[in-house]
Amino acid sequence: MTDTATPLYNPQDLMRAQVRWRMLETVFWVSALLPFFVAETYLVLCTQIAIAALFALSLDLLVGYSGIVSLGHAVYFGIGAYTAGLLAKYGWGEPLSGLLLAGLVAMLFGYLISFIMVRITHFALIMVTIGLCLLFEEFGNQAHDITGGHDGLQGVRMWRLFGTFRWDLYGFTAYAYSLVVVFLCFLVIRRIINSPFGLSLRGMRENARRMPAIGAPSKQRLQIVYTISATFAGIAGGLLAQTTQFVALDALSFQRSAEVLVMLVLGGAGRLYGGIIGSIIFLVARDQLASNNPQYWYFWLGLLLILVIIFLPNGILGGIAHLLSRRKKS
């Protein structure tokens, strides 16, 4: 046994070390600026990645941090997209306020739907989230006069960003705008995760049964995180509508719900950067594979997913972390 007279560590330092900003994070976010200089033709793809990353981050709050699965998260993504799209179509093309409203409307829906979500768990929860997603998708399809149905929402006209920057063909403005919004949202989500509230989310993930026995109002916490998650999903959807000036019905689709979950699981759920890495891998792979042989893309995705789940159950980031910790020990 070690000498207990001298403390081995300062508990506050331990906690600080858990949440401190790492050098690698700075490297990551600075390198997100590289496409401006070296990959101009890929700016559109980079914008899509940034948006998908925010969407995956919002889902991570539920799946990775709170331990609740959702296969219908596109509901909030779609609501955000249609809110931003409809605003711009009917005369209010100011991007920032439009995006804020997209988030707020998704937040409202998230809050209302959370009353159902906290009453069910596991398998039932998966089924209900799928059901909700199908419901909203069909509503979007039927409400052709409002949403454009399967033809998509046409006629979205965005005003210049800050009244100055044009939405150029290469997507400079779109990527810069998306990157800044995603980074700011990331900072907020990072703070949430590292707060006492975030710790209580992990508590629910780790052991929902213990939570009431330590005096935690689990249902209330779940409703809050569900609402927060929906808000960020809505902002991601709003970004897509604004930067593409179009909303396709698939913004609400079950497929999009499933894809974002796949991205998150590939990268590693509950690891903050898992969803980001996952969306990079997913969208870059799709871009490369689909350009050669579009019909085979799902084959490779399926294979990748199976391999990752079997060999890296904590996702690609989880696998890397495991390797690093083994190296350190030996």
């Binding site: 858990q18 006492p196 975030g198 710790l199």
Partner: peptide
């Protein structure tokens, strides 16, 4: 939880 701090999401644990 006991001190009523666990609902706070805008302040870091440290």
């Amino acid at each position: 939880e006991r001190k009523g701090e666990a609902g706070t999401w805008w302040r870091g644990l440290p």
